[in-house]
Design a binder for these strands. Structure first.
Length: 677
DNA sequence: GAGCACTGC
């Protein structure tokens, strides 16, 4: 502290001019002209909708204005963001503008990282983080203002927040709520919040000219590739961003572009092809941020990641194929599908906007204007209407919100989805006949996990494998991005062999446990990951999740001490499988002996995904982590179980006569994972 | 014998 106050004239002067400069920058933002109007509106209303276009400065300035006029003397100002990086970087920017140290007056709170202190009066956070806070502080008593930013994105967490905040703002007449959204939805937000006033703040964006195809394109990848080449040959300098739906398309486009430009030699300028998608290793992702050398042109082949999550500088041309992969959830079958779907108008405009960040740009849409006007939906269906609501329902119940079918959502999820979640929670024992949370359910709600996983975790104490199950939970919750499979025939074989080497009798979960433990035994080494085709980013994330789960276990009094030393490996593996079964018995299936399986719950036909280590083994009974439709109905992350376990663990679902009654008819050679080696 | 968009607690 004292050192900071030593007079260091040169540096202080520099800082002073920096502050002056900062002030000028702040005052040049479009929102500055609206400062007084905005503050008056907030003073006179509990809730307002703020339409701030990109570049208006709303996210950084509004909390500061409110701070400057004294709101923070009473309570904190919170501002939620859908993404972690946004929460961090905006907080850093604002603390710099205020001349304070990050984490002091201005801070941020995201999962695994709380950069706030007692002094913090402006707090940026992810919307999911605020939901967790709401479980502990249901009235948000420590906040005077809550800003829900990027509300138009309608993420699952944002939608739930909106409902809870609407409810809360009626009870707390001193709380100021600001819903910040893009133009399109402003009216709907206002209606939802009892016709609250709307303030519109223009942004600062360059014009983007839109071009359509004259006729529909049958092959949008090829069309996109040809457009890239055409731009490259005929248009002035500036990088190109192409939106495709996934890794496969990106690799195809990359090959086509390479082949097409190869023959042209030095007739045309160099074209740098940069793929980007989230599961691409970070060092390869970094390529898109490298400055383009003079005389060359960069073409970024991207998934939706570049629509909101990643911003690339110097993009002048956008090529929009008009499609994206989208999940949908069928509550009847409990199946998720990931399907190539036409994007919405809002999404198309967002993509086009990526061309106008640094200069006037051009957007080439690989579909007709008629199609844009008549075939695309206005907005993407909000996530809350197309996702499994298990953890949402559990969370809301733990906040005391019981009547979910009549709960005031901005867009209600289909009732059958809520019913399905309730049915699953009931089967897990998280809620009772009246639909109230049980003691088990309350413990489960503490964990930031899917209810199936949290049930398994709570049960792990009984099966004496808490530490192992924590690891399994952590590995499953980082998704399917652990094993890296390069885009090269030779390397693919090596990667697959590396993967198979992690096999342990029992199933995929045990292999995941093995991966984690091997990594830990090798000192969490980066090199080890590289040699074994493991994505270190996912592993580090799993390690973070693990640490968080350990802390949470202590809170709900689950003993994390590792008792495994007194148990033999075989016995331990059985315990682990039984424990997984105690969480996932709902996802049980029996072999049909022709390579497919039949789910016990509804007789649905499914197949083990070829990436599963159980693909070649095909045990009689399995329990799976997830069921996803891609080209077929595949289950991923599978373990072998015994019919007897299912009857023992879930007698309310499975009866002996139904499961084992026809066992005598089954041939004996259905193989078990133990016979593999 | 297949292929997985993107977030987030």
């Amino acid at each position: 502290m004292k050192n900071d106050q030593q007079p260091q004239n040169q540096q202080e002067l520099l800082q002073l001019s920096e502050r002056e400069n900062m002030k000028k920058v702040r005052q040049s933002l479009p929102i500055y002209k609206y400062r007084e109007e905005l503050l008056t509106l907030i003073r006179d209303n509990r809730v307002i909708v703020m339409v701030g276009e990109t570049g208006s400065g709303k996210t950084t300035q509004v909390p500061q204005y409110l701070h400057e006029v004294g709101y923070t003397k009473i309570g904190r100002i919170g501002c939620t963001q859908p993404r972690r990086v946004a929460a961090m970087s905006v907080a850093a920017r604002v603390s710099e503008e205020m001349g304070t140290k990050l984490g002091h007056e201005v801070g941020y709170s995201i999962r695994f990282e709380d950069c706030t202190s007692d002094k913090t009066v402006i707090k940026y956070m992810t919307d999911g983080m605020l939901l967790r806070e709401l479980m502990m502080e249901p009235d948000l008593a420590s906040y005077q203002v809550m800003i829900v930013d990027e509300a138009h994105e309608r993420t699952l967490h944002t939608d739930i927040l909106l409902s809870i905040i609407k409810d809360l703002s009626r009870a707390r007449d001193d709380l100021k709520v600001i819903i910040s959204s893009a133009t399109i939805d402003a009216q709907r937000f206002s209606e939802y919040f009892d016709n609250c006033p709307i303030i519109k703040i223009p942004g600062r964006r360059f014009q983007v000219d839109i071009y359509y195809t004259k006729a529909p394109e049958s092959d949008y990848i090829q069309a996109a590739v040809l457009t890239v080449l055409q731009i490259h040959v005929t248009q002035p300098k500036g990088d190109i961003l192409v939106f495709l739906t996934g890794q496969e398309e990106i690799e195809a486009a990359e090959e086509m572009l390479t082949a097409r430009t190869r023959g042209l030699g030095n007739k045309i300028g160099e074209l740098l092809i940069c793929p980007i998608y989230s599961s691409l290793p970070s060092d390869m992702q970094a390529k898109i941020f490298e400055p383009t050398p003079a005389g060359a042109r960069k073409v970024v082949l991207s998934t939706n990641i570049a629509e909101t999550s990643i911003t690339i500088d110097n993009i002048i041309y956008v090529i929009d194929t008009g499609f994206a992969k989208q999940t949908s959830y069928n509550p009847r079958t409990g199946m998720e599908s990931l399907i190539v779907t036409p994007i919405s108008k809002a999404s198309a405009d967002q993509r086009a906007g990526r061309a106008g960040r640094v200069a006037p740009g051009k957007c080439f849409r690989m579909y007709t204007k008629w199609s844009f006007l008549n075939e695309l939906d206005q907005n993407t269906i909000p996530e809350i209407q197309r996702t499994n609501l298990g953890s949402v329902v559990l969370m809301l119940k733990s906040m005391g919100i019981n009547n979910l079918v009549n709960f005031d959502f901005m867009d209600s999820p289909p009732p059958e989805m809520i019913v399905k979640s309730l049915e699953q929670l009931y089967a897990l024992g998280a809620i009772n006949d009246e639909g109230d949370l049980t003691k088990l359910g309350r413990r489960m709600a503490e964990f930031p996990l899917d209810p199936f996983l949290s049930k398994m975790l709570v049960q792990s104490e009984y099966y004496k494998c808490v530490d192992q199950i924590i690891t399994v939970c952590a590995m499953l919750s980082v998704g399917n991005t652990i094993f890296y499979r390069p885009n090269d025939k030779e390397k693919k074989i090596h990667a697959d062999n590396a993967r198979k080497a992690f096999f342990r009798p029992g199933g995929d979960h045990l292999a995941l446990l093995n991966v984690y433990n091997s990594w830990a035994d090798n000192g969490f080494s980066q090199n080890w990951c590289f040699e074994n085709f493991i994505q270190i980013r996912s592993m580090r994330r799993a390690r973070d999740v693990r640490e968080q789960l350990i802390l949470l276990c202590e809170r709900v009094e689950i003993d994390v001490k590792d008792p495994s030393l007194s148990i033999f490996e075989d016995e331990m593996n059985t315990n682990i499988c039984k424990c997984i079964c105690s969480g996932f018995f709902y996802n049980a299936a029996k072999t049909n002996l022709n390579g497919t399986y039949k789910t016990l719950k509804n007789g649905h036909s499914i197949t083990i995904h070829p990436s599963s280590l159980m693909f070649d083994i095909k045990p009689e009974w399995i329990v799976y982590n997830e069921l996803v439709f891609t080209s077929k109905e595949y289950v991923r992350n599978v373990i072998e179980v015994k019919g007897e376990w299912l009857i023992e663990i879930a007698p309310h679902l499975y009866k002996e006569k139904d499961l084992l009654g026809d066992k005598r008819k089954m041939p004996k050679n259905t193989g078990t994972s133990d016979s593999r080696n």
